[in-house]
Simulated assay, not measured.
Amino acid sequence: MLATIYKGFELSPSPYQLRETGEWTVRVMITKHHDSRDESLVKPFSASNAFKERKDAESHAIQFGKEIIDGKHLNLSVDDLL
């Protein structure tokens, strides 16, 4: 799955497969590009959800990233990327 732009952030799903079960975990890299400073800041986030299909984990990762940006997860924030 390709990266998705959401509210000025780039969301890149990067699930990994669990060796024990073969399931895919949810992981998303959230990037904020700062053209004026000529830098990009990246922060990884993961969730405990696991899916049988990689595409399902990727879809959930994008949704998870959007929720983080929207402030729906109290302990997760992208404030340090701004």
Rank of each mutant, 00 (worst) to 15 (best):
H60S: 15
A61Q: 03
V28Y: 04
V26S: 12
I30V: 04
D79K: 15
S46K: 01
H73K: 15
S48E: 03
K52S: 03
E10M: 05
E67Q: 08
L81T: 02
D38L: 13
N75V: 06
G65S: 00
M29N: 15
E10T: 09
T4K: 10
H33G: 05
L18H: 14
F9D: 03
E10V: 07
Q63Y: 10
S48C: 03
L81M: 05
S14V: 08
Y16Q: 11
S46Y: 02
K43M: 06
A57N: 02
E67P: 04
I69P: 07
K43W: 03
I5T: 12
E20S: 06
Y16T: 05
V26Q: 11
I69W: 10
A57P: 02
F51M: 04
P15C: 12
R19S: 04
I69R: 01
T21D: 00
H60L: 07
Q17T: 07
K55C: 13
S40A: 01
K52P: 00
F45D: 02
A50V: 06
A57G: 02
L81V: 01
H33F: 02
Q17P: 14
W24C: 10
L81P: 05
N75R: 15
D70T: 02
K52C: 01
Y6I: 00
K7N: 14
F45Y: 06
M1E: 13
L11E: 11
G22V: 08
M29S: 06
W24P: 05
L41P: 00
L18Q: 13
E67W: 07
K52H: 05
